[in-house]
Simulated scan of single mutants.
Amino acid sequence: MYFRESDVLEIDQIIPKILGDKDKYKNLQILHKHCHDEKTIEDGSVAKYT
C-alpha cells in the first residue's frame, strides 16, 4: 500500500518492547493505522497490555 496525504499513520515497533526489543530507530517503521492494529494483534503484544 502507498501512503496518501489523508491517511492516518502510526509509528510501530517492528519487534515490540514487550517481546524484548528497545525503542531504537532501527526497530521503528511507519504503518497505516489499520495495518498497525492488525500487526499488534498478530504479534501478540496487545494481549500483554490487557
Rank of each mutant, 00 (worst) to 15 (best):
K48T: 09
K39L: 14
K22W: 03
I14T: 09
E42P: 13
H36W: 03
L19F: 12
G20R: 02
S45A: 15
H36S: 13
G44L: 10
K39Y: 07
D23T: 05
H34L: 09
K39T: 04
K48A: 15
I41H: 13
L28Y: 04
L19R: 06
L19D: 10
Y25V: 01
V46M: 14
I18T: 11
K33H: 11
L28N: 05
V46I: 14
K33D: 04
V46A: 15
T40I: 10
K33N: 09
K48R: 12
I18V: 13
K48G: 00
D12Q: 00
I14N: 08
K33R: 15
I18R: 06
Y25L: 13
D12P: 00
I15T: 10
N27F: 02
P16R: 03
K48Q: 12
K48P: 02
I30H: 04
N27W: 01
P16V: 02
I18N: 11
I41P: 02
E38I: 14
K24A: 13
H32W: 03
G44S: 12
K17E: 07
K24W: 06
C35W: 01
K48W: 01
S45D: 12
H34W: 09
I30N: 03
I41K: 15
D37E: 15
Y25T: 04
E38R: 13
D21S: 14
T40P: 07
D43N: 15
K22T: 08
S45K: 00
K48N: 03
G44W: 00
L31R: 07
T40G: 08
S45H: 11
S45G: 15
Q29K: 11
L31S: 14
K26S: 14
L19M: 11
Q29G: 04
P16S: 08
H36D: 14
D12N: 10
G44N: 04
S45E: 13
A47N: 13
D21W: 03
D23M: 01
I14E: 08
Y25S: 13
A47T: 14
I30V: 09
H34E: 04
N27D: 06
I18C: 15
I18K: 12
K17N: 05
T40Y: 06
V46R: 13
I41E: 10
I30F: 07
H32F: 03
I14S: 09
